[in-house]
Structure formats: C-alpha cells, structure tokens
Design a protein around this nucleic acid. Structure first.
Lengths: 219, 219
DNA sequence: ACATCGTGTTCAGGTTGCTGTAAGGTATAT
DNA sequence: ATATACCTTACAGCAACCTGAACACGATGT
C-alpha cells in the first residue's frame, strides 16, 4: 500500500514512517502542505495520514480540496488532544478516521490495516443492489447496464445507501450528511431528493419506512 | 449504535434522547450514576454521553473507573459553560470529546455521527432470539429468514426487548419509551402495540407476565 | 453585462398508512 | 362467580410522505 504521511514534527514524523514501513507499506513523508499537494498530483496513494496542525496552512483546506476533486483516497487525521473542533470538522470534511496524539503506534497499525483490508483485495469493488451496479471509487452507477448520472447532493445521499445496503437511514442522518451541522433545514428537501433519486434509479429502489427513514435494497 | 445517556435534567435528557434516536441510534437514558454503572455492566454500549453534574456523585469518578477497567467505549462529556476545569479533567480522565451546554442539538448529531462513522466498519452484531434475527444497526428483523417490517412505535418497543432478552418490561416503562414524558395515555395503547407485534413476530414471541409486564425470549 | 443552464430549495395539493381510541371478547386470580 | 387484567379488531383522524412546478442562485459562456 502506498501511504502519504503529512507531518511536520521531526520526531513524530520519522517514527510514524518507520512504523508504517514495518507494516509492509511504502511511505512518502512530507512536512508541508504544498509538498503534499505536489505529491498527490503525481502519485496515486492508497492512504493519506494528515496532520492538521501544519506551519503553512490549514490541513482541512487541503482535505476539502482533495474531496472536491472527487478523490476518494482514505484519509486518517492526526490531531492533538485539544483540537477537538478540528476533529469534528475534519470528519465532516471527508476524513475517514482520526487518531489523537499522543497515539499508540500499535493503534496506528490497527487502523492502517483496517483501511488496507478494505481496499486491498478488489481494486474497484462493485456493489450490486437489485439491477443497480455501483462503483464507489469512480462514482459510476449503472441501472441494468444503462449509465445513471447523479448530481452532487444526490450522490452524497446515494453513497450512504450504497455503502450500507439494507440499512435504514433517518432523515436527520441524511441531513447531517448533506449539510454541515450548523445549517437548520425546515423543509422537505430530503423528500424531494429521495423523489428524484427514485426517478433515476427506479420507483422502488429506495423504500420508505414511515416515521423512521429510508433504505436501499432488501435487508 | 447503542448509546447510554447519563443526564438528570428532566428537560434536557428526553430532548437529547429523542434527537439521538432521530439519528437512528438506540438510547438508554438514566438519571443517576448508580443506574449508569448498572447499565454498562449489562450492555455493551458504543457511546456514552455523560453529564458531569449529577446529584449522586462525580461523573468523573465514573469515567475513571470505566477506563481503569479497560473499557474503550467513546465518552462524550456534557458540561456547563463555566466548568472548564471539569472539561480538562474529563479529557485527562479518558473522555473523547465534550459538548458545552447549552449546545445545539444538530451539533450533537454531528459529533455522534463522527463517532458512528468510526465504528461503521465493524460488522453488525446480530441478536438471535428464537426464530428471530435482529440487526440493531440496520434495523432489520427476520423471522426464520423472512423479512419483518415494523412501524416506528413498534420498533421502539421491540428494540427494548431485543436489547435485553428475557428482561421484564412494565407497561409504564414501555410508555416512557414511547412517549416524551408528559404525554398522558388513558387507554390500552401498549396492549394494542404488543398485539400488533405478536401478529408480526409470532403469537408466542412476547410473553405476558400478568400484573407485571412483558418479556421477549426466555426468562 | 447579460442570458442560459444546471442544481438545489420551497411551496402546494394530493395520497398513504400509522396510531390512538373504543368496544367487546377472553383468560386468570381470588 | 366476580372482578381484574389482558387481547383483538375495526375505524377515523391526521401527520408523514410524495411529487410536479415554480423559484433562487451561482457558474459558465457569449
């Protein structure tokens, strides 16, 4: 697995790098965000370890840019104990996990291997639900062979369903995915989006559980 | 996700509980620390929301005991604005996050989902009771292989039973789960819901203990 | 600067089906 | 035998939900 480690601490950086190497992965260690940007432009990493407290800018912005470009590379955030708001924002910005400093190196290994397992066996895992085929990495959806294109918000919602087939999602859960938590939405936006998803994916693709939420596919 | 909420405020407690439920998690609300101790001894929670200002002792001690026993359950502390020292101590004692009262319920959602996302990779534990199989995370129930769908109220009741197989629940306990405290129910609503559950789950799935209450599975 | 297009949100009217209530029947304890 | 607790069915009201269409708003092109 190819890992990019973004960490400016001269003690912690090499220590983490060595640990990850010991786990059998190849690591590139950079100390600044602009270097990180250069690296991700050139190399297709399987995982990014990102320190949020960097000298030359906010790591969050880097992460957001990455995600806005459609990158699905897993990102694990390294953060100090008192930067709690950063952690929250980080997860909302699209991080997959976080580690609180000081962290155990064995814990790092565990999370790393979890990610590796998730992404190793099948380079492009295809999810099949009914007549739908979903490629989460490339964001391609086909309905019985025909390509289906979703808008941004539609995808965010659909992704939740596709990643967890058969799981029930309440409206609040979906809202939390669509909007950062400061936004209050007092309307039926979710319903409308569901309606449009159904129009594209098939009338009975998503089922309603009245009073509880929605789910994709059978349990 | 199973959440234990330790909060003695009779307004805030149910409000938080309802919000967390709306996010698709199952919540047990207790008002005292000794009750909290009992609950964690019995149930494996995925998250604990802990008010530090409780009548019968310091929440911090509870947290420290929990950690000294090796529990890694994430704990989010609910604390008043001026209890800054508590916050620091709380984090030192092993809390994962904190929320300052008064907090926005949507902010609570965000943090909750952050924790939930961390744990979403884990396989869902399946509960088996007789010919029933229950997945609390996805809200799926099957009766000897066939899918069973419950309504909102039915689910809230059934969840209580499924989480604590063999435990007796009085009608008042069930009412408290169904209705936000104040609501007066002057009829046989619980009996009707039990009847509907039995129709879906099997005539003898839930047994009656006359004058006492109901239970699911062997006593 | 203006028009256009794509996308997201709000509104309104119609539909669905959950849920509390009541009423009548059944089981169980004393 | 009587009282009490519980079961089941039916039904009406209303909240939850669906959806077409209008509106808002930024991005993009001319």
């Amino acid at each position: 697995m190819r890992v990019l480690l973004v960490e400016d601490d001269t003690i912690l950086g090499p220590a983490v790098r060595d640990q990850v190497r010991a786990d059998g992965h190849s690591v590139d260690l950079v100390q600044r965000l602009d270097a990180a940007v250069d690296h991700v432009a050139v190399t297709a990493y399987d995982l990014i370890l990102l320190d949020l407290m960097l000298p030359d800018g906010r790591g969050l912005i880097f992460l957001q840019n990455l995600r806005s470009k459609g990158a699905v590379t897993p990102v694990i955030i390294l953060t100090a104990m008192d930067q709690i708001s950063d952690r929250i924002e980080g997860l909302n910005a699209g991080a997959d996990d976080y580690l609180v400093k000081p962290f155990d190196l064995s814990e790092l290994s565990a999370r790393l291997n979890a990610v590796a397992r998730r992404y190793s066996g099948n380079p492009n895992p295809l999810i099949e639900i009914g007549d739908l085929t979903v490629d989460l990495a490339t964001r391609n959806i086909t309905k019985s062979g025909n390509r289906v294109t979703l808008t941004a918000r539609e995808w965010v919602m659909f992704e939740a369903f596709a990643q967890n087939p058969g799981q029930l999602f309440s409206k609040t859960q979906l809202e939390d995915r669509l909007y950062s938590f400061d936004a209050e939405v007092e309307s039926n936006t979710i319903e409308v989006h569901i309606s449009r998803l159904r129009k594209k994916l098939g009338r009975d693709a998503i089922e309603t559980e009245r009073g509880m939420g929605y789910r994709l596919g059978p349990g």
